[in-house]
Simulated scan of single mutants.
Amino acid sequence: MSCTPAGPSGGSCARPDLAFAGDVLLHSLIQTDAAGRPEGFAPAFAPITAALSRAEVTVLNLEGPAARNIGLGNSEIADPGTLYDNRAYTGFPRFNYHPSIAGVLRNVGVDVVQTANNHALDRGGLGVDLTLQALAEAGLPATGTIQRGSEPVWHVTRSVAGRTVAFVACTYSTNGLTNGRSQVLNCYGNRPSIPFLIQTLSATQGIDAVFLLPHWGAEYSARPTARQRRLAQAAADAGATAVVGAHPHVLQPIETLTSRDGRQVPVAYSLGNLISSQWALPRRTGAILYLDLAQDEAGRTIAANARYLPTRVERFAQSGVAVSPAALLPAGGPSLAHARAVLGPRAVGPDGCLID
Rank of each mutant, 00 (worst) to 15 (best):
S2M: 04
A6C: 14
G10N: 12
R15Y: 09
F20T: 04
V24Q: 15
H27Y: 14
S28G: 12
T32Y: 11
A35S: 13
A35M: 04
G36W: 03
E39C: 02
G40I: 08
G40L: 07
I48A: 13
T49E: 15
A51R: 01
L52A: 06
S53K: 10
A55V: 00
L60T: 07
L62T: 08
G64Q: 08
G71D: 15
A78M: 08
G81T: 11
T82M: 07
D85G: 12
D85Y: 03
A88F: 10
T90N: 11
G91H: 11
P93K: 14
N96H: 14
S100P: 02
I101K: 11
G103W: 06
R106D: 08
V108F: 08
N117F: 02
N118D: 07
L121G: 08
R123Q: 06
L126C: 05
L126P: 01
G127A: 07
I146N: 05
H155T: 12
V160Y: 09
A161N: 13
F167S: 02
C170R: 00
T171R: 00
G189R: 12
N190H: 14
I198A: 02
Q199E: 11
Q199V: 02
Q199P: 01
T200G: 03
S202I: 10
S202D: 13
A203L: 09
G217K: 07
A218K: 09
E219A: 09
S221C: 11
R223P: 05
A226S: 14
L231W: 04
A235E: 10
A236H: 10
A238D: 06
G245S: 03
H247V: 01
H247N: 12
L251V: 04
P253Q: 09
I254A: 05
E255H: 03
L257V: 07
R260K: 14
V267K: 01
G272R: 07
Q278E: 14
W279C: 00
A287D: 07
D292W: 00
N305M: 06
L309Q: 15
E314S: 07
R315G: 01
G333L: 15
R340H: 10
G344L: 02
G344S: 04
G349D: 14
P350E: 12
L354S: 08
I355E: 12
